[in-house]
Design a protein around this nucleic acid. Structure first.
Length: 459
RNA sequence: GUGGUUGUAGCUCAGCUGGUUAGAGCGCUGGUUUGUGGUACCAGAAGUCGCCGGUUCGAACCCGGUCUUCCACCCCA
């Protein structure tokens, strides 16, 4: 009895063409990371549950994949907890390990654990899969890759400047022009909450504000009221709903709103510094925008917040994000180490490049040439040529079976192999090869030397 | 976690208010062409209608459960 094979919900198989395209993106990101001085690390797929639990809020805990203990795992559960079916008590007893939920917390753990061996500031990048027990949706999976670059051990705003440039460099290298790098600052958001007298509602206020372009001004205000923010507070923040103009002029307007707030003013100073630097240095293809409605990662970001949008006209959410967290490693006992980092959304970047037809042909090219198999004698002859071609870095192979010509040609065609070589009795006798161009359909008979020359010119 | 949606051949989908042997296109296999693919023509194979149970003389179709797909919310990459 055979069972119909399947994979868990929210996971994917990647066929060769998709792997090639994903690698193209990852290689591009990786090479820019390295140009900017980041070093790779890798951490385990699973961590001790205690490392992960409680680091992402209540919602996050629910979305962490827990790994069941091995052996007699029920022995550690006391009967009253079991009888009550209290999963909050039972879970830590039967599961002591959990799959990585993101790359940031494992990185913080890594920094603290290896603090004596790390030279600070430490710039690391990491590209590994993470897992979330979420309900899958379009562009959302239960297993996906994160591509992160972070710096720990430096408060300098030059890091933020560097990350803006790094985003620009990566998307320019991917030929994805016109991406919008949006920035905000937690300190500005805190300042606003402070001056309107809603400091205790900071998270509710900013989460609602974040939805402005999605649900509109009226609904945002309604949500704020629902969350217990006063009408007076909302009114005094009215400038936020009509903020326009460039980076500098928006900051100018905010300055007036926030002049009584120390933290708010500090946030504005930071953003001015970053913007001035970027104005002087310039960006190749990306655009930098201030977006005070941007509110992400508020549980841990303390300064700059980044989010990258696809170019105008492409229907896609954010394709990258990041920010500064003043006390990344504090939860693991290493105080006052500031971190700042960014992340690239591999799957979404893939969808955007696909939609815009930006994958270069060479990124997806497989084998360049295949030899038709006419029998063992002819195949040995072919293998000698294949060896010579491979030595010239030309990807070549022999069809392994002496199948019908039609079958072999069809195989070459389906794999989009651009050239086929026929070497039967006649060619062996003449010490030649018949090279067929599968695109044009033309063919001619040449020497090995000529063969290498032609295929080299074509690759 | 909440609400909705989907499941029929390898793929995309038809299938009438429940009624004999469940169809199409594409793909697949073989042939027209035993050293020539991508186009044409001919023939053929292929489905416990997601799974379990119920209603009925009779279920792909109705009901319940379950899994799966996709979508919205929550949250997020």
């Amino acid at each position: 009895m055979t069972q119909k094979p399947s994979i868990p919900k929210g996971t994917r198989d990647f066929p060769p063409l998709e792997v090639a395209k994903r690698k193209f993106i990852m290689n591009t990101i990786q090479s820019q990371f390295e140009h900017y001085g980041f070093q790779p690390i890798e951490t385990p797929s699973f961590e001790n549950s205690s490392t992960l639990m409680g680091k992402y809020g209540e919602e996050g805990d629910r979305l962490i994949f827990k790994i069941l203990n091995s052996g007699e795992y029920l022995k550690k559960v006391d009967e009253s907890a079991f009888a009550k079916a209290n999963y909050k008590e039972i879970t830590p007893r039967i599961s002591e390990k959990a799959l990585r939920y993101d790359l940031t917390v494992p990185f913080a753990r890594y920094v603290v654990q290896h603090q004596n061996d790390i030279e600070f500031p430490f710039k690391r990048y990491q590209m590994q899969p993470v897992w979330r027990a979420d309900r899958p949706q379009k562009g959302r999976f239960r297993e996906f890759y994160q591509c992160d670059a972070d710096v720990v051990g430096s408060d300098s705003l030059w890091q933020e400047v560097e990350f803006v440039q790094l985003y620009d460099a990566v998307f320019t290298a991917l030929k994805l022009e016109g991406v919008i790098i949006k920035m905000n600052n937690r300190k500005i958001l805190s300042g606003i909450a402070e001056v309107i007298g809603a400091s205790d509602k900071l998270i509710d206020f900013t989460v609602a504000l974040d939805k402005l372009d999605k649900i509109g001004e009226d609904k945002v205000k309604q949500e704020m009221l629902d969350k217990g923010i006063s009408q007076e507070a909302i009114d005094s923040a009215s400038i936020l709903f009509s903020l326009s103009g460039n980076f500098a002029s928006q900051l100018e307007a905010l300055k007036e709103l926030l002049f009584t707030s120390e933290v708010g003013t500090e946030g504005i100073e930071e953003m001015l510094f970053i913007n001035d630097a970027i104005q002087t240095l310039g960006l190749s293809t990306a655009r930098l925008q201030l977006d005070v409605t941007l509110a992400r990662g508020l549980n841990y970001y303390t300064g700059a917040i980044f989010e990258v949008s696809a170019p105008e006209g492409v229907q896609m959410g954010s394709i990258g994000g990041g920010g500064r967290y003043a006390d990344l490693t504090g939860i693991f006992g290493l105080k006052d180490v500031s971190g700042v980092g960014i992340s690239f959304g591999l799957d979404r970047i893939y969808l955007v490049l696909e939609e815009l037809g930006l994958f270069p042909e060479e990124a997806t090219q497989g084998v360049q040439v295949i030899f038709i198999n006419f029998g063992d004698k002819e195949s040995l002859y072919a293998m000698q040529a294949i060896k010579a071609l491979r030595a010239q870095s030309i990807a070549a192979e022999l069809y392994p079976d002496t199948a019908k010509m039609k079958k072999q040609m069809t195989h070459a065609n389906r794999r989009s192999i651009p050239f086929v070589i026929l070497a039967g009795d006649q060619e062996v006798a003449d010490n030649t090869y018949t090279l067929k161009d599968m695109v044009t359909g033309t063919q001619d008979t040449v020497t090995l030397e000529e063969l290498i020359k032609r295929l080299t010119a074509n690759s």
